[in-house]
């Protein structure tokens, strides 16, 4: 709306406002006047340098974009994660479900083993390495990403997508289980021994997924691990053997083999099965 205005700022004041060179008091006064005076608005519009206008618009856009995004994405951006990677990581429901599953399962595990002795340790041994593997399988499951068809038709590489989501979920699950391991009684630093088996199982799931599907791969790997741990217990052997030096070596070997298979498969992920 335009009102009849008797007073107008001097041309010099309008120009210094346009150049952002005036003091706060003058700026406030000019700004108040500009709200009701189309003539002076036109003067200022002509006086503003285009590149300055672009810069201000860019700053405004950036600020608006920043405010619109969830805190987790803003945090990742501050940590130096590229915008596209942060968005890919946080957008898919599968990743959020996997995170939720990992944290909830770790909390449940902690409750389960807290205050128990040998039994608690066996339960922990059985389940701890499975959690990161299971959570990674959930994050990797195509059924849980409804936009996968659209994403697959974009130039964003499938291998990068899998890597980012697997890493994020695997690390979250590992931290959650790591925290849960503190409640295992009388174990001390040995509680960290589950990390290598967990890495081996997670990589095995990723390596087998292209052939068996994510669910089947997770079931197979989880089943094999369960049979091993329970078999040792039933046979009278100590299930802690899986955490002995030789057990750790075997885990490392399995992890290395699975990693080689995953890396070998990496290009195939981007190929999407196209004949070469």
């Amino acid at each position: 709306m335009t009102h009849a205005t008797r007073w107008h700022p001097a041309q010099q004041e309008l120009q210094s406002y346009a150049d952002a060179a005036c003091g706060a008091l003058v700026a406030a006064s000019v700004e108040q006047h500009l709200l009701t005076c189309t003539t002076c608005r036109a003067h200022v519009a002509l006086g503003v340098q285009r590149d300055r206008l672009e810069t201000v618009a860019q700053l405004l856009d950036d600020r608006l974009d920043h405010l619109e995004r969830p805190w987790a994405e803003r945090l990742l951006r501050r940590l130096g994660v590229a915008e596209v990677d942060a968005r890919v990581l946080l957008s898919a429901p599968s990743v959020r479900i996997a995170w939720g599953v990992a944290v909830a399962a770790a909390a449940l595990l902690a409750l389960l083993v807290a205050g128990q002795d040998a039994d608690g340790r066996t339960v922990f041994l059985l389940l701890a390495p499975l959690l990161p593997a299971g959570a990674t399988a959930v994050a990797y499951a195509p059924q849980l990403d409804p936009a996968l068809a659209i994403v697959s038709a974009s130039p964003y590489r499938a291998s990068r997508l899998v890597l980012i989501r697997s890493l994020a979920v695997g690390i979250t699950a590992a931290i959650s289980v790591g925290l849960a391991s503190f409640v295992v009684p009388g174990w001390g630093s040995a509680a960290a021994a589950w990390l290598l088996p967990a890495l081996a199982l997670t990589l095995a799931v990723l390596a087998l997924s292209p052939w068996l599907g994510t669910g089947n791969a997770a079931a197979l790997v989880g089943g094999a691990w369960s049979v091993l741990v329970l078999g040792l217990e039933r046979s009278g052997s100590d299930p802690l053997l899986t955490y002995s030096a030789s057990g750790q070596l075997i885990s490392a070997a399995v992890a290395a083999l699975a990693l080689a298979a995953v890396v070998g498969r990496w290009q195939r992920l981007d190929d999407g099965g196209w004949p070469r």
């Binding site: 915008e83 409804p146 068809a149 130039p155």
Partner: peptide, 27 residues
């Protein structure tokens, strides 16, 4: 089947796909 993320706003989803399609300049 348009598998969009149901928790997203309409604009947010299009913006997400635009990012994947390498529209990197924000403006």
């Amino acid at each position: 089947d348009v598998g969009a993320y149901s928790g997203f706003a309409v604009r947010e989803f299009i913006d997400y796909i635009a990012i994947l399609k390498e529209h990197t300049d924000r403006r």
